[in-house]
Design a protein around this nucleic acid. Structure first.
Length: 490
DNA sequence: CGGTAGAAAGTTTTT
DNA sequence: CTTTCTACCG
C-alpha cells in the first residue's frame, strides 16, 4: 500500500489517496504526471477493498488504453491478482455493450438494427449523407457536403443545438437526422459517434441492461476528461449510482478538440454536475526548464483563480534553468526549413539526443507537408530529419527541442473564413481576402488557439524556438504574413 | 442522365 | 495549387 504513493509529490499523493466515495477532479497541468496518478489510483482502489473487476477506466485512444493497462499490470499489488480492471476507450466500451447478448437477444437488435452493424468509414458516411439529402436542402442550409456532415455531428452531440436554427432550417435538419438514423439502422452500419448514443438509447429502452452495468462497475476513472463530448458525459452519468465513485483527470488548459464536439463545461462545472465532488490540482512539472515554464505560465494570466494553474518545476536539477525561448523570423519557408534541419543537428550534438527527439510543430497540415516535401527533394530520409508533427498530434508527448512554427497571424491563431450566406437561393462564395487581413471579418476561436499554443509550448523540455515566416505560399500564391499576436504574450 | 468545363474553397482528428 | 462541387450541354 505504501509503495503506491512512493516517489510521488504531495499533490499527487493527495490525488491518489483522495476520498474513495464521491467524485474527484484532478486538474493536471502539462507534464505533471497525470498518467502516474491515474494508474496508482487504480492500485489504491484495489488495495482499499475494490475488486479490480468493479473498476472501469476510460480513455480516448487505444494507445492510451494500452499504456494504462500495461502500467496497471506493472503495479506490484496487481501482479498477485488474476482479476483485472476494465480499461478501454469510450468507443470500445460502448461497442462491447452493444454486441452483448442478453436473454438470447443481442443488444443491437433491441435498437432496431437488422444485422450486426459494421463500422462505417468516413467515405461511406459522406456517401450516405449525400444520398439522403437533396441538393436543394443543402443550399437552403447554406452548407456543402462536408459542412453538412459536421453539422450532423454537432447536432448529434448537442441535440439542443437544433433548436437554434430557424424554422425552415430546423425542419430540414430534423428530417435529415431522422432519415440518416433510419438508413443506418436499416443497412446495419454504425458511425463512431453512434456507439455511445446507441448505448444511451439502449439503457433507456431496457433499464435492466443499465442496472447490470451500474452494479458491475462501482468506480469509474476517466482520462483526458476535458475532451469528453456531451454524449459521453450523459453515458457516464447514466452509469453512476449515487454510491459509485468517479475519478476524472484532465486539463482545461489543454482542451483543443472543441471542433469535434468536445465540451470543457463538465470540467469547469465539475462540482455542480457530479456528486460530492472535490478538486485536486497538479502543478508541479517534471518536464520543462524554468524558462519554458515561465513562458507557459504567462499564457493564462487572466484566468479566474479557481481554475488557474501555475506550473512550478519539480526537477531536482535546478541548474536546468534552461535557455530563454527564442522568437525567430524567416523571409520564406526554404530559409526556415534549412535552419530547422541545421539547428536540429546542432542540438543533437550538444544535448546528446536522437534527431527524432527534436520536433517541428505545425498548426496546419499544409505547412507540415511543405517542409516534409522540401526535405524529400533535398534527399533527406525521414531518419535524418526532426519529427514533423501537428500540435494536435503532439499532445501528450514531450521533446528536448521544439520548433513551434506557423506563428503568423491568421495561420496561428488560425482564422476561418466567415460563414457562408445565402442570397437569392444561392450560396455566396467565401472570400480569400481574410488571409491577408482583408475586409471580410474572419472567425477566430481565440481561446482554443491560445490553448493550442500552450500545448505547443509545454511540449518542450529544454529548447524552444517560436517561428514566423514572412512570405509563404498559400494555395499556390505567395502571401505576406504578419507575426502572430502570440508574440505579445511574452 | 452523364460528362465536363469552370468556379469555389481550402484547420485541427480519434474511435 | 489541388480537390471538390455545380451548372450546363449534348
Amino acid at each position: 500500500m505504501k509503495n503506491l504513493v512512493e516517489g510521488l509529490n504531495e499533490e499527487q499523493c493527495a490525488a491518489v489517496r483522495a476520498s474513495l466515495t464521491g467524485s474527484i477532479l484532478v486538474l493536471a497541468g502539462a507534464g505533471c504526471g497525470k498518467t502516474t496518478v491515474l494508474t496508482r489510483r487504480i492500485g489504491w482502489l484495489c488495495s482499499n477493498g475494490f475488486d479490480p473487476e468493479h473498476v472501469c477506466a476510460l480513455t480516448f485512444t487505444r494507445k492510451a488504453a494500452d499504456e494504462m493497462r500495461e502500467r496497471v499490470s506493472g503495479i506490484e499489488l496487481m501482479k498477485e491478482c488474476e482479476r483485472r480492471p476494465f480499461i478501454a476507450t469510450f468507443h470500445s466500451f460502448a461497442l462491447f455493450i452493444l454486441r452483448e447478448k442478453i436473454d438470447e437477444v443481442e443488444n443491437f437488435v433491441r435498437l432496431g438494427y437488422s444485422a450486426a452493424p459494421t463500422l462505417q468509414t468516413e467515405k461511406e458516411r459522406l456517401k450516405l449523407i449525400s444520398e439522403i439529402v437533396a441538393k436543394g436542402d443543402r443550399e437552403i442550409l447554406g452548407v456543402d457536403l462536408i459542412g453538412l456532415e459536421s453539422l450532423i455531428t454537432r447536432c448529434t452531440v448537442f441535440p439542443e443545438k437544433i433548436n437554434a436554427f430557424s424554422g425552415e432550417n430546423q425542419l430540414i435538419i430534423r428530417k435529415v437526422l431522422h432519415q440518416f438514423t433510419y438508413e443506418k439502422r436499416r443497412r446495419g452500419v454504425w458511425d463512431f459517434e453512434d456507439l455511445t448514443a446507441d448505448v444511451i438509447e439502449l439503457f433507456k429502452l431496457d433499464f435492466s441492461v443499465l442496472e447490470r452495468y451500474q452494479k458491475k462497475f462501482r468506480y469509474f476513472l476517466v482520462d483526458e476528461f476535458q475532451d469528453t463530448n456531451p454524449v459521453q458525459i450523459a453515458f457516464l452519468r447514466q452509469l453512476l449510482l449515487p454510491s459509485t465513485g468517479l475519478f476524472a483527470v484532465g486539463d482545461d488548459d489543454q482542451a483543443i478538440y472543441g471542433f469535434r464536439g468536445a465540451d470543457v463545461r463538465p470540467t469547469l462545472e465539475f462540482t455542480t454536475i457530479f456528486n460530492n465532488a472535490g478538486i485536486v490540482k497538479l502543478q508541479t512539472n517534471y518536464r520543462s526548464s524554468l524558462q519554458i515554464l515561465h513562458a507557459a505560465n504567462s499564457i493564462f494570466k487572466k484566468k479566474p483563480q479557481a481554475y488557474r494553474k501555475i506550473l512550478r518545476s519539480g526537477l531536482s536539477n535546478k541548474s536546468s534553468k534552461g535557455v530563454p525561448p527564442k522568437w525567430l523570423h524567416f523571409e520564406n519557408q526554404t530559409q526556415m526549413a534549412d535552419f530547422l534541419i541545421g539547428e536540429a543537428q546542432k542540438q543533437v550534438g550538444s544535448l546528446k539526443i536522437n534527431i527524432h527527439q527534436c520536433a517541428v510543430l505545425f498548426r496546419i497540415n499544409r505547412s507540415l507537408e511543405w517542409v516534409s516535401q522540401y526535405y524529400a527533394q533535398q534527399g533527406f530520409t525521414t531518419e535524418e530529419t526532426p519529427a514533423l508533427v501537428t500540435i494536435h498530434g503532439s499532445k501528450g508527448l514531450e521533446y528536448p527541442v521544439v520548433f513551434l512554427c506557423d506563428l503568423e497571424e491568421s495561420v496561428f491563431p488560425n482564422y476561418r473564413p466567415p460563414g457562408k450566406k445565402v442570397r437569392k437561393g444561392r450560396i455566396v462564395g467565401k472570400i480569400l481576402d481574410y488571409f491577408i487581413g482583408g475586409k471580410a471579418p474572419a472567425v477566430c476561436d481565440w481561446d482554443e488557439e491560445q490553448r493550442l499554443f500552450y500545448v505547443g509550448v509545454t511540449r518542450a523540455k529544454q529548447v524552444l524556438y517560436m517561428i514566423t515566416v514572412r512570405n509563404k505560399f498559400v494555395y499556390g500564391r505567395k502571401r505576406k504574413f504578419e507575426r502572430s499576436r502570440f508574440r505579445k504574450l511574452f
